[in-house]
Amino acid sequence: MAKTYGPLIWLQLGSMPIVIVSSADAAREIMKTHDIIFSNRPFTSVLDRIFYGSKDVVFSPYGEHWRKMKSICVLHLLSSKQVQLYRQVREDETAQIIRKIQEANGSVVNMTDLLVTLTNNLIARVASGKTYGFQHTVHRIANATTRFFVGNYFPSFTWMDRLSGLLREADEIFKESDDLFEGVIEEHVNKKVFGIKGHDLVDILLEIQKDKSTGFELERYMIKAIILVTFI
């Protein structure tokens, strides 16, 4: 198509305009020169429902709120210092995977399952202090975000998504994940009661929430949104 119509192709998918870029020069103009104009992700009803009204750092519209959320993630959660602090966690989880391979005694090992388990356990321990059962919820969210929602392209036909049960399913997934992360936060607020040890990402977010000098009010649902994005 690019040979016939050129490096920029405009498509209209329902009410959603799509621009296809197929040259390095055009991509540079969009991604570097005019990146702010094209920085927002497309709005979708399922993402807005699951990710707290798109108030997380990934799907939030470009603006002051996004800049504050990004600053929190970059400076407090993903800095090189924080990464080094969790070196022991990485070594522990990797050692467990190696032991499982050794215990197989030469029999067939499903490396995909082991690596998924390793990734999930690493993120869970770094983010929340222990290996919570997040896999089921993450899997449901991943499946929901890849489904075709008619209303995203034809807003006047959103009733079809409601009729098919897709919007109800998105609301159920949100309720499941929100309850899960609410429990995680409660455990960290009452660490002594629940026996939570160490200092993880949830603790850091709760400290930022208490710090009034930042000039940014990190609300509880924003903390849950950051934790959710961390896993996704």
Rank of each mutant, 00 (worst) to 15 (best):
T112S: 09
N110C: 12
A95V: 02
P61W: 10
C73E: 00
N40G: 07
E91N: 14
T94W: 12
K100R: 03
F149W: 00
F134P: 08
H76K: 05
Q88L: 06
F134N: 11
R140N: 03
C73L: 00
T94I: 07
V74Q: 00
N121L: 03
D56F: 10
F43K: 03
A104N: 07
Q96L: 06
L85M: 12
G151C: 02
T44F: 08
K130V: 12
M111A: 14
S80I: 01
I50S: 13
K81N: 11
S71E: 14
R90C: 15
A144N: 01
N143A: 05
R41V: 01
R41L: 02
P42K: 09
V108D: 11
E103C: 10
R99P: 07
F59R: 04
N110Y: 04
N152F: 04
N105Y: 04
L163I: 15
I50H: 06
F43A: 06
D113S: 12
W66Y: 11
G63I: 12
T119H: 15
Y132M: 05
S71N: 06
Q88R: 09
K70D: 03
I101H: 15
K100L: 07
A144Y: 00
F157N: 06
T158F: 08
S79Q: 05
R28T: 06
L122M: 08
R147S: 03
T119F: 13
V126E: 14
N110S: 06
K81E: 09
I36L: 10
T119S: 10
A127I: 11
V83R: 10
Q96R: 15
L77F: 05
F154E: 00
P155Y: 12
N120C: 08
N152P: 09
F148N: 00
H65F: 07
N105K: 14
G53M: 09
P155D: 14
I97S: 08
F51Y: 04
G106T: 09
T145S: 11
V116T: 11
F149P: 00
S71I: 06
R125G: 02
V57C: 14
K70V: 01
G133R: 15
K68M: 11
K130M: 08
W66Q: 03
D35G: 11
A104G: 14
Q84E: 10
Y86L: 11
D56V: 01
A144C: 01
T146E: 02
F59N: 15
R28G: 15
T117P: 06
I30P: 07
T119K: 10
F43T: 05
Q88Y: 14
A142H: 12
T112A: 05
P155M: 09
S45K: 03
